[in-house]
């Protein structure tokens, strides 16, 4: 096996650029996933069937089809409809949308875990629906699901190299570009692979610690 440390050194400036883009995609993607997932989860509890069913069908569809194809769809089809986004923006929207269908399930489980008595108490106090959600149900539900949400952030991190395929220069994208210039694939791709483990492993330890603290 040929390993060239100077190639690693040459790759480093690009690598840090890539790390920044990966983290940017991860943070913004997570924010979209957390917010949109909550919207899906609450819509699935709507008293109106006309709201529940479409949301259910859409989330099932997005969850059961590949993220990569969804990214291509967003990247190639949206411009045909007159909406042109940069590769990175498309990637962030794609990651956020895809993972929002997972976080919706997580929130749903958390909401189901809130005892029925809490809902009944709100009815007894004739609390408006908005306040029931914001002051009673969600604070109890979300606390319990924080570790599970953390797991999906880690899963999203590991899916983030897919946005390199549509041309966003995150870690893997930078490695590919470096390889195409220098014809050295070994060092950059190995460095990127290890970087994922170095980020993901402590993060998974963190979610396990959160699980012990928050889920009781």
């Amino acid at each position: 096996m040929k390993w060239d440390w100077s190639a690693v050194g040459d790759f480093m400036p690009r690598f840090w650029d890539g790390v920044l883009v990966t983290l940017q995609a991860l943070v913004l993607g997570s924010l979209i996933a957390f917010a949109l997932g909550l919207v899906w989860a609450m819509a699935q509890r709507s008293p109106l069937k006309a709201v529940r069913w479409p949301v259910m069908v859409v989330t099932e569809f997005i969850r059961n089809t590949p993220l990569l194809v969804q990214l291509f769809f967003l990247f190639y089809v949206l411009p045909e409809w007159g909406l042109t986004l940069s590769a990175l923006t498309t990637g962030i929207v794609g990651l956020g949308l895809h993972y929002s269908t997972y976080t919706a399930e997580v929130y749903r489980a958390g909401i189901d875990g809130v005892p029925v008595g809490q809902w009944e108490a709100c009815t007894a106090l004739s609390m408006p629906r908005g306040r029931t959600w914001s002051a009673v149900i969600l604070p109890q539900a979300i606390r319990r699901v924080v570790p599970a949400l953390g797991n999906y952030v880690i899963a999203m991190l590991k899916d983030s190299p897919m946005i390199a395929v549509i041309g966003a220069l995150e870690m893997l994208g930078q490695a590919r570009q470096f390889t195409s210039i220098t014809f050295l694939p070994t060092e950059p791709i190995t460095v990127v692979g290890i970087a994922f483990i170095v980020i993901a492993y402590p993060a998974s330890l963190l979610t396990r610690a959160l699980e012990r603290r928050l889920v009781r």
């Binding site: 096996m1 590991k158 390889t179 290890i194």
Partner: peptide, 24 residues
């Protein structure tokens, strides 16, 4: 388990496809 769960499947695929032939 930690290594293969920790890294990304796409990166692993690239590694097998581009690095294995050159390095080994």
């Amino acid at each position: 388990m930690e290594i293969f769960r920790g890294t990304s499947a796409l990166v692993l695929m690239f590694w097998m496809f581009f690095v294995l032939p050159v390095a080994f």
